[in-house]
Nucleic acid binder design. Structure first.
Lengths: 237, 237
DNA sequence: AGTTCCGATTGATTCAAATCAAATGACGGG
DNA sequence: CCCGTCATTTGATTTGAATCAATCGGAACT
């Protein structure tokens, strides 16, 4: 069995032992609420590249990622793809009041999710201000990320895009797994290209250039951020 | 006095007569909550091009736009600008748990806002599930818009960008003021360029091309969507 | 009416990234 | 170990949009 590059250990099936308990939506729930909430949730697994939900699907579930990485993306009718985000453990996905998801999600490597049917979840959350506030907080965070990404897509060069991606992906992994300048990249070059609004060739060339400039070292399955100050400078300016 | 192209009539100062009462955040409040809420709010006016708040400002207020149009944008240190959204009456702006706004807002033409100090607003909302759910709904809507905009910025041609912008701007105005194919554009060409990730020259050329192709007619202060089916086709594909 | 000012348009040229086209490299199966 | 497959890298060329550079046009002044 291939182990995930971005694994989080979890031992039981119960929420109290859940790896993600402390920092996901559920962090807002007290002991009693938690017990009820546990009844609504179901663990499921998806294999590498399996689709968790599709943009035209009726929204029937919300998902809390427990382990692995997912990509969220939108497809245009002619096949052009824009990845709107990568999902890491603890991230809450699919929250919407719309009838349809509007974007697709699939697994990058094997994935474990905690799944909630929309209606029972809605009933549960309906009169729980603590949970609603937490959901708000998460939505606002995502919105801020989305706006940052708009700046990147609209106004930055290929080199800035790639450097920004590497730095912010590393920062997310650091939050999750502690500091390291080794940056695992479980997603393909094509995924990175579709996330940054570039082609795969440009991404590849830009990696090579960053390596030539001594900013990164390309490793199998990732990179090492060799000169992270310089990478951060590219990401900021 | 110059009248706003996107005016909404409102007659009194009280929330009950507010033009925006029915579809903004406040739509979720009952009569009694409304009365309390009213105490927290303060009307203010901003002149054309005045800044309502700046990206590095400490978040002290949230804003509900009552009349006029605003632009929300982020600036890079070197001056590059990405407009992350245009704000129309009824839109709720600035909701964040972060210490700083992270983006700037300024008036395009004269603007009236309903303003709430962050802390009292937070206390008021704290245990009001109806309001919290409404805020969630609005945040999720914005997030969906943001993701659509990522697709546009990352994967669409200049012509598609401009057509998409015109169609979706028209749709927002239709929701607000009823059907019409006359599309007022209170923002400058530079604003449109910074929204679409293009230069002003490319926007101008693309307008001209769309007019040559019989899709729009350029009017002072806006355009007429002459062949809205063709514009929508460009926007979709 | 003439002048100034500023936003918008148009034209000429350049350039960054896309496209087209191989070559290379990593991995899994026979 | 060799072969086929597929992802990635590298190279050559094209191209869409950016940049540089005038002009145009409308509104607000005298």
């Amino acid at each position: 069995m291939k182990t995930s590059l971005v694994a989080v250990d979890f031992h039981g099936q119960g929420c109290s032992e859940c790896a993600v308990r402390g920092f996901s939506v559920c962090a807002s729930l007290d002991q009693f609420e938690m017990r009820e909430f546990e009844q609504l949730s179901r663990r499921s697994h998806f294999a590498s590249c399996e689709t968790v939900f599709s943009q035209e699907d009726i929204t029937s579930c919300f998902y809390n990622l427990l382990d692995g990485v997912m990509r969220l993306y939108k497809l245009l009718p002619d096949g052009r793809r824009q990845i709107v985000g990568f999902v890491l453990p603890g991230d809450f996905v699919g929250m919407t009041t719309e009838e349809r998801h509007g974007f697709s999600a699939d697994a990058i490597g094997p994935v474990t999710v905690c799944q909630f049917a929309k209606l029972p979840f809605g009933r549960f959350a309906h009169d729980k201000p603590n949970l609603l506030r937490r959901m708000n907080e998460l939505a606002v965070q995502e919105l801020n990320q989305a706006r940052d990404h708009m700046v990147l897509l609209g106004r930055r060069s290929a080199e800035e895009k790639v450097a920004t991606f590497l730095v912010s992906w590393r920062d997310r992994l650091v939050d999750l797994r502690g500091p390291s300048n080794i940056v695992p990249l479980p997603m393909s070059r094509q995924d990175i290209a579709d996330y940054l609004g570039l082609t795969i060739e440009t991404v590849s060339r830009t990696f090579t250039k960053l390596e030539r400039d001594g900013i990164i070292t390309i490793l199998p399955g990732g990179v090492s951020l060799r000169d992270s100050a310089r990478a951060e400078a590219l990401a900021a300016a």
